[in-house]
Design a protein around this nucleic acid. Sequence first.
RNA 1: GACCUUGUAGUACAAUGGAUAGUACAAAAGUUUCCGAAGCUUUUGAUUCAGGUUCGAUUCCUGACAAGGUCGCCA
Length: 599
Amino acid sequence: MLTQKNYYMNVIEKIKSSVATAIQHLYQVEVLTKDIAINTTKPEFEGDYTVVLFAFVKQFKKTPEAIGNELGNYLVTHNSDLFENFNVIKGFLNFTICSKVWLNFLAENYHNNQFGKTQTTGNKVMVEYASPNTNKPLHLGHLRNIFLGWGIAEILKTTGNEVVKTCIVNDRGIHICKSMIAWQLFANGATPKSTHTKGDHFVGNYYVKFNDELKKQTENLIATGKTKDEAEKEAPIMKATHQMLLDWEAGKPDVIELWEKMNNWVYEGFDETYKKIGSDFDKIFYESNTYLLGKDLVKKGIDKKVFYTKEDGSVWIDLTTEGLDEKIVQRKDGTSVYITQDIGLAEQRYNEFKANESIYVIGDEQNYHMKVLKLICQKLQLPAADGIHHLSYGMVELPTGKMKSREGTVVDADDIVEEMIKISKQKTEELGKVNDFTTEELNNLYRIIGLGALKFFLVRVDPKKKMIFNPEESIDFHGFTAPFIQYTHARIKSILRKNEIVTQAFNSDDLLPLEKDIIKHLEIFPSALSEAAKELDPSKVAIYVFNLAQLFNSFYAQHSIAQAEDENKKQLRLHIAQLTAQVIKTGMGVLGIEVPERM
RNA sequence: GACCUUGUAGUACAAUGGAUAGUACAAAAGUUUCCGAAGCUUUUGAUUCAGGUUCGAUUCCUGACAAGGUCGCCA
C-alpha cells in the first residue's frame, strides 16, 4: 500500500521504542517495534496504554507477571519522563503516562492549525474518481464515488503526498448516441435554454425517451413473432443508433457537431453540480481522446510474448496461471476493447504526470477488471503497474432494491442535494438560533449543514460495503452525523468567543479522566489520518472525528469551562476546546465538510 | 459451475489476534434558575453455522449456508 513517513513521534511509538530498548537491556533480545502490541487500556483498569505480554512468554521463559513487573519497573525508573506508573494484570502491562506528556502535547499544539498534517514525502499520487457517462445526470452512486475520491485525495495530501485529482469522462459510445437519436427524433430543436432545463438533465431526458421508444418498437416486433433479442436489435431506432456510432467513428461532420453540442450541455450541467458539492479535478481525460490508446502496447505485448494471437486475428492474454482466465485485449477487427484503453491510459497518465501511485475509485463490480488491468500492466512491465490501487466501493441501493434508470428509481444527485439543504433549513428555522443572520449567511449555513449531512452519510462506512439509502431514515441530524459534529464545533466556538485563552504553564497534578481522554484522542489524530491513507478508507477519519465530538460533549456536560474550579483549570479546558475545534475542522475538511462558527 | 466481496442487537455501522465485543438510530426513563438540549445520563439487546490453528479468534485457515458482484470482444 501507500508508504507514509510520519515525522511526529506519537506516544504509542514512544512507548514501543522504549519497551524495545528495555527488553534489549533486560533480556538481551532484539524485538522489532512492530511486534510489540500496544492497546489503549480498558476503562475498567488503571492506566492509559497497555503492553500485551503473552507474545514474550515463550521467548523469555518467564511468566507474564514476571516480565510485566520487570519491564514496568525498568521503564518507570529509566523513562520517568514518559511513564509515571504501571500495574500488571494477567498478561497485560498497564502504563500510566505522565500528565506532563499530555499537557506538553496540548501546549505545543493548541494554536497549531497545521496539526495532523505531515510534511511532504515526495510521493506523487493520482486519484481518479467520478468518471461519469455523458448521456444522463449524476446520481447517488456517483456522489458516493466523488466524496470517497475527493476525500481520499485530501487525506493523501494531508499525509504528505502530492496529489493529482483526475477524471475520465466517458463521452463516446452507444449510450450517448441513444440520447442524440432521441433528440433528433423528438426535440424539434429544443435546447436546455429554451426549456429552462439543466443541461445534463435535458440530455438525460432524451435517453429516457429513447428507451421508451425502443420498448414500444420492440413490443411491436415481438407481436410479429420475433424473440426479444431479435426485436431489440431490429428496432428501427436501435439500427439508427448503431449507424450513428459508425458515423461518429468515421468523423461525419453533422454527427460530430451534434455530439459536441449535446456533450457541452451535459458538461455545463455537471459543472454546476460539481461546484455545488465542492468537487474539482486537476486534469480531465476524455474517452474520445483515449479510446484508441493501447494499440501500440498490444504490439509490444505480442513481441514480448505476453499476448498471443488467435487464428481469427483477435489478441489474448492467458491469465490461468494467476487463477484468472483468458482475456481478450484486441478484437479480430483490430479495434481496442475497454481494458486495452485502460492500459493505454495508464501509460499515458504516467508519462504525463509521473505519479508513482494511482488510485482508481471505481465500483466493486469492476474488481475483476481492475485485477486484470494491474496484472497486465505488470506483465508488460509498465512503470505505472505496481502503483495501481483500486479503491473499490459497494453500490448504493434503495430499500426497494437497486436503483434502475429504466424504472425511474434512480436518486438524482441534484435532487438529493436540494432535499438535504431544504431539510437543514427547516430544522434550523425550528431551532431559531441564528435569527440575526442575513439571507446570504442563512443560505450558506443551510448548504453547509445539508451537504455535510449527505457527505458524511456516504463516507462514514467502510467503502467496500454496499449501503442502503433510505430517504426517510438516512436524513437524520442526530447521532453519527455531520450536523452532530458541526454542532459541537459551533458550540466550542461560542465558548471561545466568550472566554480568552492565555498561554500559560498548566498545573499538572489534577488532570481529570475526561480531560485526559480528550487529549489522548487528540494526540492520535495524525495516526488516524495516516491509517485512513494507508487503508484508502476515509470512513476512518469520519469515525475518528465523531468519537472526538462525542468525547467533548460528555466532558462538556460534566465540567464547566467558564466557571471552572480555578483559572488554571479554565485555561486548560479552553486549550482543550480550542484544539478540539481545530481537529474537528481539519478532520471534516479532508472529507469536504465545512464546519460553521454558529448554527 | 468457477472466482471475488460481505455476513455482528429490531435497523445501520465499529473493533493492528487481546481483558467483560463498542457506537448510533429505534424503544423506555431521566436531564435546561449556570458556558449553545442539533446536547448529556441510564436501561433493554448481537459475533450465521460446524470444524481447525492459538495461551487467547468477530478477526486467521477449511467447509457449509445466505446476500451481492464478476466470468472471451458493453463500457
